[in-house]
Design a protein around this nucleic acid. Structure first.
Length: 394
RNA sequence: CGGGACGUAGCGCAGCCUGGUAGCGCACCUGGUUUGGGACCAGGGUGUCGGAGGUUCAAAUCCUCUCGUCCCGACCA
């Protein structure tokens, strides 16, 4: 009653959802049951971080019930791949799919899968999780169904989610000293056309050409190729100088800027500048739309590739604990190390270095079984069958 | 919850140590010239100095309390 804005404190979603699932599900015919919701969440963290760990945040969460364990596992991995696809092909943020260790997994889950990204400061960001909940909540909430043989069984469940943390991930993956860089597929405005007007009667011609280009960019041919329709802004403002506008569009991350002045018109060309490279191209007006569409597609893949290169550069195979500590401090990054699977080693490493096991990575094809490799735990030297990824994280 | 800093014009800050009645940059307003990488010249101050008490002839400045913000740590399955 003392709060200006009323808050309702609730337990974790799984408990609420399951109390409903147990009412809604009676038969195998009710399965699978697949729910998705967007919800804002409050967590009373001692310390917040803009976008990455805010007191209140918006997230998307899915909750599903299945007939069999295999089906639940399939759903868990399916969503993991949906998240990976979104991260990489929309956000241009490369991620590593993996499994969380016992100490890092969701408490109610049998297994927690995750996508982990490397930010430009070489710290790791957990960008999304997908849990195979097994029958843990089903047993707690009596979520049962009658199977095809009339036997009562507990459902097999999954849950998964991503949050506004992804916005932070986007910013920290692509931004540079000029400002934010938005991948074309997520940009609200893809192209800013800046007519460089001189207040002369010829200016009308500039706007005419600018408008025509904006119109040409609506050609369905381009949206067919890119997967989105190109959104264009013709800057009609006469108050700010061209230089001011260039900086402004760079600051907010518009993927492509088109400069169009009388000098261009004389040469029958436009100047095209990509936000990520800053390289200026002088293109015949007749080819401008086609070139812009092509550059948008190229920029999308270049951004992903650039981030991949960075991650590659700062990923290390490490077998010596002293080397491990040194690399963590400088330059940082993902350290692929053997680990004996003992929580005590994991805990000690965390206490000594602040590095945690981000995940046990899935193999190159994102198959379930992590790559097998004989080795010795970086901490205690005991036998290990696979490498895990250590990093400092947000 | 510990440790540290900061609240002064719309924004970013200086002034505080050593009290004397508030200043700088940007922004903004007026006029003119400008416009291809954040234009220039001239003129203009728009402020309960976070709040409340206290000391003093006098407080942005010193003291006490209070509110708020940020950073670091702990925390974050």
């Amino acid at each position: 009653k003392d709060l200006e804005e009323k808050l309702v404190v609730r337990p974790t979603s799984e408990t609420i959802i399951n109390s409903m699932f147990s009412k809604w599900i009676q038969s195998y015919r009710d399965l699978p049951m697949l729910l998705n919701q967007w919800a804002n969440v409050v967590r009373w963290e001692m310390r917040t971080r803009l976008f990455l760990r805010t007191t209140e945040f918006l997230w998307q969460e899915g909750h599903t019930c299945h007939e069999t364990q295999a089906e639940a596992e399939e759903e868990t991995l399916k969503m993991l791949r949906v998240y990976k696809d979104f991260a990489e092909n929309y956000m241009a943020m490369p991620v590593i799919c993996g499994i969380k260790t016992n100490s890092e997994k969701f408490a109610g889950a049998d297994r927690t899968y995750c996508i982990e990204a490397m930010m430009q400061d070489r710290k790791a960001l957990q960008a999304g999780t997908s849990h195979n909940l097994g029958q843990n909540f089903a047993k707690g909430f009596e979520t049962k169904f009658q199977d095809r043989q009339s036997n009562w069984q507990f459902v097999w469940q999954t849950s998964w989610g991503v949050s506004t943390r992804l916005v932070g991930g986007l910013v920290m993956t692509h931004s540079d000293d000029k400002g934010v860089v938005i991948p074309p597929r997520l940009a609200g405005i893809h192209v800013a056309i800046v007519p460089i007007s001189k207040g002369s009667p010829d200016d009308a011609k500039l706007f005419e050409v600018a408008d025509k280009l904006a119109y040409e960019l609506k050609n369905p041919e381009y949206s067919g190729t890119l997967g989105y329709s190109i959104s264009t802004k013709v800057d009609r403002d006469t108050q700010h100088s061209p230089g001011w506008k260039f900086h402004e569009y760079e600051l907010i991350g518009i993927p492509i800027r088109v400069e169009l002045g009388l000098r261009d018109l004389e040469k029958n060309q436009v100047t095209i500048v990509r936000r990520d490279t800053g390289v200026k191209q002088f293109i015949p007006i007749a080819d401008a739309a086609k070139t812009i569409a092509r550059e948008l597609g190229q920029m999308q893949s270049d951004l992903l590739e650039k981030a991949r290169e960075m991650r590659k550069k700062y990923s290390f195979v490490v077998d010596d604990y002293e080397d491990f500590k040194k690399k963590l401090d400088e330059p940082g990054g993902f350290l692929h190390c053997h680990w004996c699977e003992k929580a005590s080693c994991e805990e000690q490493i965390k206490n000594e270095t602040k590095a945690t096991i981000r995940c046990i990575p899935l193999d190159a094809a994102d198959r379930l079984t992590p790559a097998v490799e004989q080795g010795r735990c970086i901490k205690c030297g005991e036998k290990s069958m696979t490498r895990v990824i250590f990093a400092r994280s947000y």
